[in-house]
């Protein structure tokens, strides 16, 4: 089996799905990004910093970030009931938590940044793709940041540690390990683990996911530069 593909879609164990990021796709949003990775299609809009109408969320010394992750009813094979559910509430929260450490909103006290992540088509790994696209949109909005956060997952399928799980691999695999980092310093802003991994498998998966993040990060940067250099 050595040298031949182990995975269903013919990828190597450390190979990402084809990835495409476009910046500034929405006119009315302050910042926006459209991302395609494998069969995922994700649209992110960022508004702000703006005056908040929710007084209780405001902080007198800094700005705050709020996220909404939403899956379109037609994004999955069986129609998804529209509206927030347990899963999307969780992802909204962890996305905001993953992005927050990178933001520098001290100069915008009492303001709020809104991030809307819309999953138009889903095919595994949407939370990581959402984070990746959201941080690009935040940079496009001109919001001061320490780094562009990037997300990527690794997991265990057929007793093998692989990078960037697809939907089938996620469902049939033994473990999933989504990770978000700030690539310049390597600081981790999100780490979840679902399934069974031994200690050595965990470190291997983490390392692989880190590597994947670095690769995705390059595409993020390229996409951001492209907006202003290709004209």
């Amino acid at each position: 089996m050595i040298g031949s593909s182990l995975r269903e879609d013919g990828r190597e164990y450390n190979e990402l799905r084809p990835l495409k990021i476009e910046v500034g796709v929405l006119d009315r949003a302050d910042g926006s990004a459209y991302l395609e990775v494998g069969g995922n299609k994700i649209l992110v809009a960022v508004y702000g910093p703006r005056e908040s109408y929710i007084r209780r969320l405001l902080k007198p010394n800094t700005g705050v970030i709020r996220c909404r992750y939403n899956m379109a009813p037609f994004s999955v094979d069986d129609r998804k009931r529209p509206g927030p559910d347990r899963r999307s509430s969780e992802i909204s929260k962890i996305t905001a938590d993953a992005l927050r450490p990178a933001l520098m909103l001290e100069n915008y006290p009492r303001s709020m940044v809104d991030v809307f992540i819309e999953v138009i088509e889903a095919e595994g790994g949407t939370r990581c793709a959402g984070i990746t696209a959201a941080s690009v949109a935040l940079a496009d909005a001109g919001i001061p940041m320490k780094d562009i956060v990037v997300g990527c997952a690794a997991g265990k399928v057929n007793n093998e540690i692989v990078l960037d799980l697809s939907e089938v691999e996620d469902k049939e695999g033994q473990a999933d390990l989504p990770l978000a980092i700030m690539p310049r310093t390597g600081e981790i802003t999100l780490l979840q683990s679902d399934g069974d991994l031994s200690e050595s498998e965990f470190s291997k998966a983490l390392e692989l996911a880190m590597d994947g993040c670095m690769q995705v990060s390059e595409i993020q940067k390229e996409a951001l530069r492209k907006k202003y250099t290709d004209e």
Binding site: A102, P144, K146, D147, M182, P183, R184, K221, R225, T229
Partner: peptide
Amino acid sequence: DLVIPGQI
């Protein structure tokens, strides 16, 4: 030069 957030 055009730079992006986090660039050294």
